[in-house]
Computed example of a mutant assay.
Amino acid sequence: MSDLTTTRARVWALERRDGQVMGFTDHDRDLAFDGLVFRAGTGMSASAIVQATGLAVDNTEAVGALSDAGLREADILAGRYDDAALTIWEVDWRDVTWRRVLFRGSLGEITRAGGAFRAELRGLTEPLSKRGGRVFTAVCPAVLGDADCGFDLAQAGFFAEVELRVVAEAGAILTLPELPEFAAGWFTDGHLRITSGAAAGLSAQVRRDEITEGARILHLWAAPGAAPVVGDRVRITAGCDKRFETCRLKFLNQLNFRGFPHLPSDDWLIATPRVEG
């Protein structure tokens, strides 16, 4: 790395959860390495990076202008950059093979003001600051389909891919084909992911699933950050209310149930002997 600070620039590689990778630099021309072009003129900059030894959390932030050439406000509002992976290098712009990693982590809270954004950057040690431990409850704490659950949601009968017929309430209520092979309520507490159109890659949780007049209507807990339109394709997966009966009867997965269905309730804990005359 050159000792002359005037030959140094910073570059950012940002990878969203949908797999899209974007590159930015504060240099006055584009730079490229590792198969990625880092675009100049995006208005991106970063405050001083504070790093410490041990398990201390790296602390920094990035700021930039909202523009079509860089980060678009619509994508930020849609949540496409939530928890996006981020790597920051310092490079010699004359020869980018001379570079070093300054920061590796993810985007945290993003705020907007005056046509610009400010994003908190969270280091790799951020998860270590969270409290851990197992909670003993009657319901299952696992997420359907994750490693603890062990259920394969890709098997037939537990997902469907269809086109939207009607979109209402800014995307919070979606009408699909009837899908008679699935019972009413089959997708309640399930997951919906938009796979085509401008909102592709966004997802939401299903609050209620009902069948009416030859159609299936899904009520979401919250509308996606960008509303889908009629004709967009979605993938929906079966829902689980995390009860033992559901795990056993709906998914035949009772051996992987992570809850404690026979745990005494609060009423049992405060029960007292009853005296009868």
Results as ranks from 00 to 15, higher is better:
Phe257Asp: 02
Lys130Val: 02
Gly190Asn: 05
Phe151Asp: 04
Ala40Lys: 08
Arg72Phe: 09
Leu144Ser: 01
Val11Glu: 00
Trp186Ile: 01
Ile194Ala: 06
Val96Lys: 02
Lys250Glu: 14
Ser2Thr: 15
Glu210Ile: 12
Arg99Thr: 05
Leu107Asp: 03
Ile217Arg: 14
Leu144Asn: 00
Ile110Thr: 15
Cys247Val: 09
Leu102Trp: 08
Ile194Trp: 07
Gly201Arg: 06
Ala40Pro: 00
Val162Glu: 08
Val275Ser: 07
Leu102Thr: 05
Trp186Asn: 03
Phe33Trp: 13
Ser47Leu: 12
Pro141Tyr: 06
Leu86His: 07
Phe136Asp: 04
His219Met: 04
Asp3Lys: 08
Leu36Trp: 02
Gly277Asn: 12
Gly105Ala: 07
Asp18Tyr: 01
Asp241Ile: 06
Arg17Asn: 10
Thr60Glu: 08
Phe33Met: 06
Arg39Gly: 00
Asp83Phe: 14
Thr6Ser: 13
Arg193Gly: 04
Gly70Asn: 09
Ala65Asp: 15
Ser196Lys: 10
Glu169His: 09
Ser106Tyr: 04
Ala138Cys: 01
Ala56His: 11
Arg39Ile: 04
Asp146Thr: 00
Arg131Ala: 12
Trp98Asn: 13
Asp92Trp: 07
Ala62Tyr: 01
Gly41Ile: 10
Cys247Lys: 07
Arg112Asp: 03
Pro273Thr: 10
Asp189Ala: 14
Asp83Pro: 01
Arg118Cys: 00
Gly43Pro: 10
Gln51Met: 15
Leu14Pro: 00
His219Ser: 11
Gly114Ala: 11
Val230Asn: 12
Ser45Lys: 14
Glu15Met: 11
Arg134His: 05
Gly114Leu: 05
Gly214Asp: 06
Leu202Asn: 05
Arg10Trp: 06
Asp189Pro: 00
Gly64Ser: 11
Leu174Thr: 04
Asp189Leu: 12
Thr5Asn: 11
Trp98Arg: 14
Val101Tyr: 00
Leu202Lys: 05
Arg274Thr: 14
Thr125Asn: 14
Cys247Pro: 06
Asp241Pro: 05
Gly277Leu: 12
Gly259Cys: 09
